[in-house]
Design a protein around this nucleic acid. Sequence first.
RNA 1: GGGCUCAUAGCUCAGCUGGUUAGAGCACGCGCUUGAUAAGCGCGGGGUCGGUGGUUCAAGUCCACCUGGGCCCA
Length: 918
Amino acid sequence: MDQDLKYTLNLPQTEFPMRADAVVREPKRLERWQTEGLYQKLQEKNKAGEAFILHDGPPFTSGEIHVGTALNKTLKDIVLRYKTMRGYRTPYVPGWDCHGLPIEYRVMVAMKKEEAQGPQAIRSACAAFSEKYIQLQRTQFERLGVLGEWEGAYRTMDPQYEGDILRTFAAFVEADLIYRSKKPVYWSIPCRTALAETEIEYRDTSSPSIYVAFPMQQDAFVVVWTTTPWTLVSNLAIALHPKAAYEWVHYQQKRYLVAHERVEAFVAACGWEGTHTSLAGLGALLEGDKALHPFLDRESPLVLADYITMDAGTGCVHTAPGHGPDDYQTGLRYGLEVYCPIDEQGCYLDDGKVPQAWVGASVLDTKTGANTLVINTLREKGCLLQQATLQHSYPHCWRSKTPLIFRATDQWFIGLGRYALRQKLLDAVKTVAWLPEWGAARMEGFLKSRPDWCISRQRLWGVPLPVFYDEHGAPYADAGVIRALAEKIAQKGSNFWFEANAQTLLEGIPLPPSWQGKLLTPGTDTLDVWMDSGSSHHAVLKRNKALAWPADLCFEGSDQHRGWFQSLLWTSVVTQGAAPYKKVITHGFIVAEDGKKISKSEGPSQTAASYITRYGADVLRLWIASEDYRDDIPLSENILNQVVGAYRSFRNTLRFQLGNLHDFDYERHAVKTFSPIDQWVLKKTDELIERVTESYELYQFHRAYQELNAFCVNTLSARYHDILKDRLYTLAPNDTLRRSSQTAMYRVLRTCMRLLAPILVFTTDEAFEFLTQSQKKAYESIHLQAWPQTKPSLYDTDVCAQLDSLIAFRSQVHEALEAARQSKRIGQSLDAQVTLAIGPDVLQETLGKCLVRHVDLLEELFIVSKVHLVLVPELGLAVQVDHASGVRCPRSWRWVEALVEAPGFGAVCKRCEAVLRS
RNA sequence: GGGCUCAUAGCUCAGCUGGUUAGAGCACGCGCUUGAUAAGCGCGGGGUCGGUGGUUCAAGUCCACCUGGGCCCA
C-alpha cells in the first residue's frame, strides 16, 4: 500500500552518481576536453576580451612533479579559469627550466665513464633527460586539470630561447655591468674541475690540527688554529669577532692573543702550565692591529667578522680569501686580494711569493706535500705551538672520492651596484603589487644585501657564457658579437658553441678592432641558470604574439623572491628599464600537520601522482583551494579526509538539486514570481555570489571554499532543501509552489556550479552535463559559461528579512523538538505539533510580527504537522511541543484531523487526495 | 646568527579601522530518519585566542620581549 503511494511522489531522479569515481571518470573527461580543444575554445570565446597574462614560472625538468609543484600549478589554473569566466582573454603558456646542475649531475651519476666522453655526449644525454621529464610532467599537469598552451610551451633549452638568453647577456655587457674576478670554489684536484654544493660528499678523514702563533710586537702573538696548514701561504688576515672579549695568555715571558671563551681549551691543548691571563679588549677594538706572517715577508692585519664561533679554535681565525667563502667575503669587505697560488693540479705555483723550494708541492700529498713543508717551517720558526691529528667529516669529490679544496678561480660577475642599478631595482619594486604585501619588503631586503651576481659556471649543461680568450688568457666580450652569436645559437642551438671552434663561431661576424689578429679560443663556462629563467619575460612574453609585456601576474612559491622574481627584475630593468610584472603573488610551502617541514627521507613519497591516484584531481584541487596559501600549507591524511568530506557534501548538494529538477524544463516551467522561501534562497544566493566573487578577486580561494561549504551545508542542506522536500515530493508536479522552488533551485544550482567551476573542474563539468541533458540541450562545458551575476529583481528584500527572522527562530523550535524527541514523545519532526505562546512584548518585535504575518508558512518552515499561535498575557515567547493529534497521512506523513479516501490508493490527507485525483 | 614571516577550538578557516557571553564547517558524543540512504536532519560537549609584560575605561585585535614553525641567507 505505502509502496504504491511512494510511486505517486515526485522523488529525486538523476543518473549523476553519488560517488565520484574520480580515478576512472576524470581521465575520460580530460580526454574529451583535449579532443574538443577546450583551451582553444576558451581563447576563441574571449578573443576580444581584455587580456590577463599570467607568466608561468618554469619548473625544473629534474623529476616527477612534487605535490608542491601541483599546488603551484593548480593555484595558477584556478586564477586563470576564474578570469576566463569573467571574460578575460587568458592565454597561458607554461614553461620548463631545462638546464642546470641537478640534471647534469643525475645524468653523470647514471652514465658510465666511457660514455661520458666529451661535452656533446653528456649534453645530449641531459637534453634527453629533460625531454623525458617534460613529457611526464606535462601529462601530470594536464591530469590535474591544468589548462594551457601545452603544445606551445616554452623550454629554456629551445634554440630560440637560448638565443634570447644570450641577448639578455649582451645587454648586460653593453651596459658595462660584467666583470671578471677570482672567487673560491670547491675544486676537485683529480677531476680538475669546480664542483657545486650537491656534488659534495662528506666523508670522515684525518687532518693535521695546528695552533700557529703570528708575531705582533715583541714577545706578543696572535694565535690561530687551522686544519689546512697549506693555506697559510695564502693568509692575508686574521679575523676576530667584534663582540667577543679577547685576552692575552701569558706563558714563559710571552703573551698570546686568544678569545676569552677559548683560553681554557687552548691552554689545555698546548699542555701549558703556569699561565695567567690579562684582558686585551673586545675584538672590535683590535681591528686594524697588525700581525706578521710567520714565514713570509708580509703583514696580516686583524679584521672583524661576525661568523666566528667559539666552539673550536682560538676565536682568531686564519683568513685566506682565495681558500674559503667566508674568508672571501671578509676579503671583499677589507679590499684584500683573492690570492690563490695553487694550480689546477693542487700544487703551489711559482708566483714569486711562494718559497721557491715549495713550487710544485701538492696540497693532497700527505707525506712530503704542502702541509708538511708548512708545518716544518713553522716549527723551525718557533711559531708552531701545538700539532695534533683531527678526525672529522670533510667534503670530498663525489666522483674521485678525494678531499676537496677551496681554490680561487676566474669567474664572471654582474656588478649589481654599478650605475645606480640597485636603486633602479628598488624603484621598480615599488611599481609592483606584492601579495602578501610583505613581499615588497622581502624583495627590498634581498636587493640591498645581495652581493654581485656570479654568473659563470664550470658546467656543460647550460647556455654558453659567450666570451673568448686570447693565448694569454685575456677575455674578450662584446655586445655586438654576442648578439650576432645569439642569432646563430637561436638557429642551431647551443650545441653549436660546444662543437665549433672560434673561427667557425665568429664566421661572418664583424669583430671589434681590438679583437683583430688575436688567436681566440671560446670559453668553456656556462651561464648560471637564473640567467635562463630570468630571460623568460623577453623570450616568452615579448616573443609570443598572443602574450604581452609586462605580465599581469606571476604566482610562485615565496622562495622565488630570492630566485626567479629577482632574476626577472634584474634582467628586465637592465633590458627594458622596468619590472616585467604588475603583480606578484607568493604561496608558502607544504608542511606536515604539526607545522614542520616534510622530511624527504622518511614517510611516503610526496609526488603529485601519489595523491591523484588515491584522491583524484578534484579533491586535491579542493584541498589546495581550502588552504590559506600565504602561510605554510599543512598536508596530512587527516586534512585530506576532511576535504573528501567537503567534496562529498558539494557533490551531494549538486546531486540533490539535479534529482529534483528531473521533470523541470526551464523554458516551459519557470515561474516569474517566487514563493517567500524561494525569494529568501535567491537572496542568499546573491549574497554568496558577492562574497565568493570578492574572494576570487582577492585571490583568497580558501574564503570562497569556506563560503561555498557553509552555503551548501547551512543554507541549502539544513534549511532550504530540508524545508522544500515536502512540497517537491508531495505536491502535484505542476503545482505553482513546486515550480517556484524548482525555478529557484535551477538558478541556485547553476550558480553553485559556476562558482565552484574554477576549483572542482571535473565535478562541475560533469554535473553541468547532466543538467544540460535534462534541459535537452547540447553539451557545452561549464568552463565556457559566464560568471554568475546577482539578480535582486527576483526577490523582495523585506520578505527575505522576515524569512530570515523566522528561520533564525527555527533553532528555538528545534531545541523544543529535540527535548520532545529525547523524552520519546515524538520521533521525526512531522510527528509534532507546535504551540507558540506569544506575549505582548514579543508581538511588538519583528519576530512576533513575522510569526503572525506568515502563520501559514510556519508548518512548512518548521517541518511539523501543525503550528498554533496563541496570544498570552505573559511576557516572552514559549515554544511547546506535543505529539500531533489526528491521523498520519501515509503519503505526506503529516498528521491531519481526518483522512479521505483516494480511489485506488486508500485513505490519505485532503491535500494528497487532490493531488492523486489530478 | 641575520632578513622576511606565521601562531584563534582535535583539523581547515572567520573575527574590518581595539568595545556586548570569540564564530563557521569538519571531526567527536547523543538522538531522529530510512522518500538525497556508502545519504539527510536535530541537539550537545570542546578554544580565553602560543607565553610573559605593557598601553588603554576596554585587547584575540596595538607595543615590547620570549617560545615554537616556515622561506631565504650566513
